[in-house]
């Protein structure tokens, strides 16, 4: 039986704009994935612990406050520390293009800016999940 792709959708930082996170959560569900939604104001520690307990394949982070350079790398770092570097981490939100190389160098696999179709995100996940699905 094919294993379901499990995705943690989390909003690190303090901003409350969860329209994007919720739309993505629904779109991933409608694409047959299991989405664990942890809601607003999550610290990197909370996100990583949830990711490990839920044994997810993917962590999807959404942030609009501008704190991405601080919070995204921290999530990847903590996952590594816990030996969970087989988790695919990507982000979305209001993130200036010029920050993307820095974030990628810190292990964020991709950044999806405003206007990215959900279908693109779904394809990206399917193509890049690190753990085998069978």
């Amino acid at each position: 039986m094919e294993r379901k792709i499990r995705v943690l959708v989390a909003k690190p930082g303090l901003d409350g704009h969860d329209r994007g996170a919720k739309v993505i959560a629904r779109a991933l569900r409608d694409a047959g994935m299991e989405v664990i939604y942890t809601g607003l104001r999550q610290t990197p520690e909370q996100i990583v612990n949830a990711a490990i307990q839920e044994d997810v394949d993917v962590v999807a982070l959404s942030i609009l406050s501008g704190a991405h350079n601080h919070l995204f790398p921290r999530v990847v770092e903590l996952l590594k520390e816990r030996g969970a570097d087989d988790v695919l981490v990507f982000g979305g939100g209001v993130i200036p293009e010029e920050d993307i190389p820095f974030l990628k160098s810190k292990g964020i696999a991709e950044i999806f800016g405003p206007g990215t179709p959900t279908s693109k995100t779904i394809e990206f996940i399917r193509a890049n999940v690190k753990r085998p699905l069978c």
Partner: peptide, 22 residues
């Protein structure tokens, strides 16, 4: 900024990275 809007001082752990941003 968001820490102010959520009633945290700038030195609260949750304010990390958010001070003065929005």
């Amino acid at each position: 900024d968001l820490p102010t809007q959520i009633g945290y001082d700038s030195d609260h752990p949750l304010s990390e990275g958010e001070v003065g941003k929005v």
